[in-house]
């Protein structure tokens, strides 16, 4: 598919110089980064525990530190 043993092809524009393979990897990283942020996780459907809240078995909130500034 791609000959990895041959000479690399480069994109050269003024001071900008990069091989197409490296450029492809960087573009792919950007895409994966954006998709990871945009795409909802399948684990969202599971029951989730609210951050900074300690909940008893009957569902009553024992402690809630979410308003505190400790994490900021």
């Amino acid at each position: 598919m791609v000959n990895l043993n041959g000479n690399s092809k480069v994109l050269h524009y003024g001071w900008f110089l990069i091989t197409y393979s490296n450029l492809m990897v960087i573009v792919l990283m950007f895409l994966v980064f954006i998709i990871a942020i945009a795409l909802p996780s399948p684990t969202r459907k599971h029951k989730i525990i609210e951050p900074n809240k300690e909940v008893a078995k009957d569902g009553q909130v024992i402690s809630d530190t979410s308003a505190g500034g400790d994490d900021l």
Binding site: I35, A36, I37, L39, S41, T43, R44, H46, I48, I49, E50, P51, N52
Partner: peptide, 14 residues
């Protein structure tokens, strides 16, 4: 064995 709810995001898998 439990984690905060905000972890359910692809951004936290890397």
């Amino acid at each position: 064995d439990t984690q905060p709810a905000y972890l359910t995001s692809w951004a936290y898998t890397f």
